[in-house]
Nucleic acid binder design. Structure first.
Lengths: 146, 146
DNA sequence: TTTATATGTAATTAAAATTGTTACAGTTTA
DNA sequence: TAAACTGTAACAATTTTAATTACATATAAA
C-alpha cells in the first residue's frame, strides 16, 4: 500500500499562481502604498481571506512585506526587475503535470509497475522547459502589459 | 456577466492523458491481440468504464479499433512509430495552464480587465514549447522504456 | 485611552470537478 | 441460445478548491 504517493500524484490546478501574479501586479502598480487585502480581492472578485493566504506565502518567500493594524496592508519588498515569473511558479506550483491515474497501478503488470516513474521523467522534462521560459520573464515585463 | 468564460478557465487535471498513454502502452505490447477493457483496467486499477470512455476518444481519433461482442476488445490502428506524445496530449488536454482565478475579475480595474488575456498569452507560449517537446517523442520511444 | 480598521489564521461550509458504480442495450462468438 | 464484451447514460461518491465565519492581535488616529 502506498497512500502517500497519491497525495502527491493527484493534483487539481488551483488559482494560486494566477492569484499571486495578480497580487504582485497590483502591488507593482502602487509601489509606494500598502494595499489592503480587501482592495486586492476587489480586483480579483474573490474573498479577502484567500488573498491573505497567498500573501502569507509571498511573505514566506520575502517577496512582500505587510503592516498590520489600521491603514495596514501589503507592498512589494523587492524590485519588479528582480522577480521572475519562474520565482512565482516555484512558489505556487509543485510541478506541472499532465496528470496521473488516480489509483496506484497494478505492480504485477510490467507496464503498471513502471508507468508512474516514466510519466515522472516525462513531466520533469516539461517542467525544466517551462522554468527556463518563465525565468526569462521578469515581473516588470509582465506588468508593463497593463 | 460572462459565466461562460469560467467553464473554460477552471480546469482540474484529470487522469485522461495518463490513462490514455497507459492504454496505448499496453496495446503496443500486445500488437496482435484485442485487449478487453477489463484487462486494461486491471493494469491501472481503475474502473473498466473509465477505460472504455478513453477508448471512445482514441477511436474518434483513429488511433485504435475495437471489436464488440465475445472475445472483443481493442487494438492499435496505427504504428507506434506514427503516434507522438503530442498527438496524445492534443487528444486529451485542451491546454496546459498554471490556472486562473475562479471568478471573473473586476473589469473596472485596469489589472483585472486584462489579467486573463495576459495569462492566456503566457500559457499559450508554454503550450507551444510543450507541444514541440512532445512531438519529438514517439509512442515507440515511450513504450520501449517498459 | 478608546475606537476603527486591518492582518493572520483556524475551522467549517459550499461548490466544482473527477472518478466510481450501476444498469442495460447492442454485438459477436461458440 | 448463452456467454462475454463493447458502448453509453445516469447517478453516487470522492476529492479538491474556494468561500465564509469567527476571532485574536496589531496599529493608527481621534
Amino acid at each position: 500500500m502506498s497512500y502517500i504517493c497519491n497525495i502527491f500524484y493527484y493534483s487539481m490546478i488551483s488559482g494560486k499562481f494566477a492569484i499571486t501574479l495578480h497580487i504582485l501586479t497590483l502591488l507593482s502598480k502602487f509601489p509606494d502604498e500598502y494595499l489592503s487585502s480587501e482592495f486586492l480581492a476587489g480586483s480579483m472578485n474573490i474573498n479577502p481571506v484567500l488573498v491573505r493566504k497567498e500573501i502569507a506565502n509571498l511573505k514566506k518567500h520575502n517577496m512582500v512585506e505587510s503592516r498590520e493594524g489600521k491603514n495596514g496592508g501589503t507592498r512589494l519588498a523587492k524590485s519588479v526587475k528582480d522577480i521572475t515569473l519562474d520565482d512565482i511558479f516555484k512558489m505556487t506550483f509543485q510541478k506541472v503535470s499532465l496528470g496521473y491515474a488516480k489509483n496506484d497501478p497494478n505492480p504485477a503488470c510490467p507496464v503498471g509497475k513502471k508507468i508512474n516513474q516514466n510519466l515522472d521523467a516525462l513531466y520533469d522534462g516539461i517542467n525544466i522547459k517551462i522554468s527556463a521560459q518563465l525565468k526569462d520573464i521578469s515581473l516588470m515585463e509582465f506588468t508593463d502589459k497593463f
